[in-house]
């Protein structure tokens, strides 16, 4: 299991009911991790609608997960 730190923004924060959490996961890639989180928090947004960053760098969804990574999920927002 890999322990990662997760941060949620905008709609994801609202749906998760929290701004972030620490999670032990068997997921090997960001895509697998997001699938796990969709089941866990009932996220409604598809991965392709989001940007994801690991340790403050944008990454592709196939990026591998490493112990201690900080993963940030960012939906587009439009309010003004």
């Amino acid at each position: 299991m890999t322990v990662v730190n997760l941060q949620y923004y905008a709609q994801l924060r609202e749906q998760a009911g929290m701004g972030g959490e620490q999670l032990a996961t068997a997921a090997a890639t960001l895509r697998q991790l997001y699938e796990e989180l969709c089941a866990r928090h009932d996220f409604t947004l598809a991965a392709d609608a989001l940007k994801v960053a690991v340790n403050a760098q944008f990454c592709g969804w196939d990026h591998p997960l490493r112990e201690g990574d900080t993963v940030v999920f960012i939906p587009p927002v439009a309010g003004g």
Binding site: Y9, A10, Q11, E14, I74, P75, V77, A78, G79, G80
Partner: peptide, 10 residues
């Protein structure tokens, strides 16, 4: 560009 969602912004 800027936009907001509830308590956050980009």
């Amino acid at each position: 560009l800027a936009s907001v969602y509830q308590y956050e912004g980009q």
